[in-house]
Design a protein around this nucleic acid. Sequence first.
DNA 1: ACCTGAACACCGTTCAAGT
DNA 2: ACCTGAACACCGTTCAAGT
Lengths: 227, 227
Amino acid sequence: MVARTGRAQRRTEALSRERITEAAVELLDASGEGGLTFRALSERLATGPGAIYWHVANKGELLEAATDAVVAAALAEPAEAAGSPRDEIRAVALGLFTAVAEHPWLATQVSLQLSHGPTKSVPLRIFEGIGRHVGALGVPEDSWFTVASALMHYILGSAAQNASNARVAGSVVDRAEFLDEVSAAWEKLDPDDYPFTRAVARQAREHDDREQFLAGIDLILAGIHAR
Amino acid sequence: MVARTGRAQRRTEALSRERITEAAVELLDASGEGGLTFRALSERLATGPGAIYWHVANKGELLEAATDAVVAAALAEPAEAAGSPRDEIRAVALGLFTAVAEHPWLATQVSLQLSHGPTKSVPLRIFEGIGRHVGALGVPEDSWFTVASALMHYILGSAAQNASNARVAGSVVDRAEFLDEVSAAWEKLDPDDYPFTRAVARQAREHDDREQFLAGIDLILAGIHAR
DNA sequence: ACCTGAACACCGTTCAAGT
DNA sequence: ACCTGAACACCGTTCAAGT
């Protein structure tokens, strides 16, 4: 039973950073961060583990490349008929929100890169993607940094929290059941320790993710003009 | 050279979940997530790897317990002479911000828990800690959920981004040098791809982390009253 | 009930050898 | 220049055996 069956088919194309990254994303989507190993990856690419190291320095770089590819795709919206800055920002926000819903591993990876410094390509891409439209919003220039940061952090946090819903919610029914469970769990919390969470448990049951998400964006945008 | 020197001293206290969690936090602080292994942990506790499994189910649970302990401590402020809701929120925010600065591994762990569902204790603690004061803010009840979420996500995102600064900045001089480097890196970006980031590069150099952070909180709070 | 420590399966990474 | 695949060091986890 020596598995010569291992590699599915003879490789036709040469290996490349792009092909490797693509396969890594597929593996991550299929089974999360634990599913991405050099062995699984090399089998999928019909090669040996060592070959990958010719194109990628290590696992961290691989994860970074996979994250970067997905984020770049999410931000590369058609950008058709440019709407108002507000609409543009909502579009960017929803694009990222959707990307995390489709790739739940993304949330942790972006947070990791964020905590590795503001010169990493992923945080930069996102910051620029949002900031570009903040400039057009008519905000005084010395608020640009604050506004773009607030929007970026809110978007990434909400997306992370939503990633869990996405894991469960295949259908609308599952979705409703899931919300019921969360709501019920919240209502069972200790009244002394969690009065607030209990109080909003009903809202949690009724809320629509995207609507809720966009309401937060609007809240932040409203803050700009209030000052 | 068989290392019977391994365990530093005979254990005096019995093992417990608390002692294990405490040692885990120390290891994480000293060398990040990579530094937390069952072998290193058991050596520090003067026991064998297997012993830990009597108190903790697996590594995930260990990480969860460590995160929970640190977050709980950060939220357990003296709560002396209660200030305005606004001040209370700023205090909670700064407490979390500081905790992440002191424990850079915290950012990724909280994000991980966030993406594992809204019934995990860490997200719940934070949500409640903030929400409690949102209720006192005079906001209509149907905005509570949105406002508390927006604040929580902004806080966690900012803290994550700041974790990287913390890793570098021992002294004020290091800090200034670091900001100069970031700013310089941003100014070297492609003008076509990163016009916005380049435009705020100067602001990045001059900004004060905490001030910037609190400005974002104020922005969100301002949004509430603008509606 | 709690601890010990060897053993197992698996992982990231390296590297001499091939083409 | 690029790929192969065995080998190394290390890790999470299990479990028979002890107290």
